[in-house]
Design a protein around this nucleic acid. Structure first.
Lengths: 287, 287
DNA sequence: GGACTTAGTCCAATATATTGGATTTGTCCA
DNA sequence: TGGACAAATCCAATATATTGGACTAAGTCC
């Protein structure tokens, strides 16, 4: 949505403009939720005009609704005239958190994936331009693998990075990744262009596998965790000894994909660009 | 609001019922927030009919609004047909919590009170039919006082209890308080009836003081922290050596009252009967 | 200090959200 | 199986929430 629109010929343009577009009225209930979602997505206080453009609603309506939300403690005015989510929302969230334990759900998913595949499973996100392992679970067999929660890896070495970097611009990627990170485990060097190309090649896939990049004896397979708009928030990933991996790509891919989808549903409403919320949700201690 | 209403004579009652009440239409935006607040106040999943009576709204409207809320992740269906607050609300709450640190505010208030009065100040709630000190702050002078965060005291000994028990029924109070708790510090025994009477006597006050009950050399003064409906959620309290207290009641009462009011504003939207939310809010670790 | 931009308020016209009640669907038990 | 009750859906009538635009207030910039 929002792509460039082909302009009609100018003489026709007038005619089309004449057609009463009859933009239908918005609904108050939707607008109220739009306002809340918008402020959550921003994360910083916003003025009423900012909110107006952010949710594209008329000024009169917006002022009215914001007044009502403020009266009920859903919004609070900070400084002079910027609003942010209010105490009612905080209380509501606390109550919601009692039932909804995101951290537990994701951990269960990681453990399930580890059990299903009988391999090391990870839940991975982007942090400071490294791959950060947020959760990891080993299968029942004892694992010699080094990956642990909290560990960071250079992005070009990881399968997950192909999805995690998908929504960044080429230049941004080139600017932020340390050039030492392009040195792979076997000592060979990947060119930034090859890396970008690799990211592009994964754009339309829902799994991506690397063999021997992290470790010469390991394969790594990842599947993206997406929000409602299709932005990649994180990945589910398996680390598999090459000896197990041969000829079983589909098996591992299927399980990884399935769990990534399940987690995506849970996290689908995290707004694009607010992956920090993911961190907050995982830190939740609910009782 | 909600006090007992004098019924008119029965024959007049009919006449009044006849008057076309012309109940004006409700507003969708309000109803949406009503639903969220109601579910937060309940804390358990509710069916649509339950919500209808809970917020007294027509069925058709309620089904419609709930459907919209569910579509946006603000509500989730559990089991077959009961709803509870959804993941959107949890995310919203997380974001709101970044700005709104209730724990910090209350702690600041307790410390302020301690500094203003130059005495031990406490933020106190009811827990398992004891008085629980949730937060405490000492004035700049070193204090020999024993009170500490997490400590529990028998209710009849405390000034705070007169407010904390205000909204409970006589029988409930009698049933739940251990009879040993009626033994005061000096060894004398307060009768349950005297305790109930004491609670009643404090009902219309916004401060209550006890001399020498907790300790023969101490006075204790408390002021209630109220929610929007006037329910007592907690108290702000000062513990003062009797030697300092003499002739300075107004000074201590004023400060205690003022801080209790300030905290009340912060907590005013905690629903009656959900004091557990207070615990959740205080535990919030926001970064 | 005057012109210009941005923020906020107010109001009448009308598109539509809300509503009661009828209807259908589901559930429970005899 | 059927009868009774509750839950959920549907629908037309109308009360009203939404809206554009006019208007005022408040900054901002030369």
């Amino acid at each position: 949505m929002g792509g460039a629109v082909h302009e009609g010929a100018s003489e026709r343009g007038e005619t089309m403009a004449e057609s009463k577009a009859e933009a239908s009225r918005g609904r108050g209930t939707d607008r109220v939720l739009d306002i809340l979602d918008f402020l959550a997505a921003r994360g910083t206080p916003c003025t009423v005009p900012e909110i107006c453009v952010g949710i594209s609603s008329p000024r009169s309506t917006t002022y009215l609704l914001i007044e009502r939300l403020e009266a009920r403690g859903y919004l609070e005015k900070v400084d002079n005239s910027a609003y942010q989510l209010g105490r009612s929302v905080a209380v509501l969230g606390k109550v919601a958190m009692k039932h909804l334990d995101f951290a537990r759900f994701i951990r269960a998913a990681v453990q399930q994936l580890a059990a299903d595949a009988d391999q090391l499973a990870e839940f991975v996100a982007l942090d400071s331009w490294k791959q950060l392992v947020l959760m990891a679970a080993v299968a029942r067999r004892p694992s010699y693998l080094l990956s642990a929660e909290g560990s960071r890896h250079p992005l070009p070495r990881t399968a997950s990075s192909r999805f995690l970097l998908r929504d960044f611009g080429r230049q941004e990627i080139l600017d932020n990744i340390d050039e030492r990170d392009y040195v792979l485990r076997d000592g060979s060097v990947m060119t930034p262009d090859a890396f970008i190309a690799s990211i592009e090649s994964a754009r339309d896939s829902d799994v991506f596998a690397l063999h021997g990049q992290v470790d010469p004896h390991l394969a790594c397979i990842a599947s993206p965790v997406l929000n409602a708009e299709g932005r990649c928030l994180a990945t589910m990933s398996l680390v598999v000894p090459l000896v197990d991996f041969e000829g079983r790509f589909d098996f591992y891919a299927d399980h990884t994909r399935r769990m990534a989808k399940a987690v995506s549903e849970q996290l689908s409403l995290i707004p694009a660009g607010r992956e920090d919320i993911l961190g907050l949700l995982l830190k939740a201690r609910t009782d």
